[in-house]
């Protein structure tokens, strides 16, 4: 039997990297920097959810990760359109 613990540990490590990215989200000089940091945090959240799904034995978390990935993609597209200036 393979242990689940390493997956939980990896998820915690990725959560630590999420804090590093949030630092850029806080200090980023322009709105575009913040948007890039948010995109990175979204990717890390998806990966962390999949790892936690394996670590805690809950497949539901992986389904949530799929939906989160698609929704965060749509929100990134909207933010990019906003950065372009104008909604046309």
């Amino acid at each position: 039997m393979i242990a689940e613990l390493p997956f939980t540990v990896a998820a915690v490590v990725l959560a630590g990297f999420m804090f590093v990215s949030v630092l850029r989200l806080a200090i980023g000089p322009t709105a575009a920097d913040r948007a890039v940091a948010l995109d990175t945090v979204n990717t890390l959240v998806v990966t962390t959810m999949v790892l936690l799904g394996a670590g805690l034995g809950q497949v539901v978390l992986v389904d949530v990760a799929i939906v989160y990935a698609l929704l965060s993609f749509v929100s990134t597209l909207y933010i990019a359109r906003y950065l372009e200036g104008g909604w046309g």
Binding site: V36, D39, F73, R81
Partner: peptide, 30 residues
């Protein structure tokens, strides 16, 4: 678990470069 994780990975691989391309273009036009 394996199949769902694989689907999540495929979605991530498809959406990540597209989203970053949109951000770069938006930043340049902004």
């Amino acid at each position: 678990l394996a199949v769902h994780a694989l689907i999540a990975l495929v979605f991530l691989l498809l959406t990540n470069p597209t989203g970053s391309h949109a951000l770069a273009r938006g930043a340049y036009r902004g």
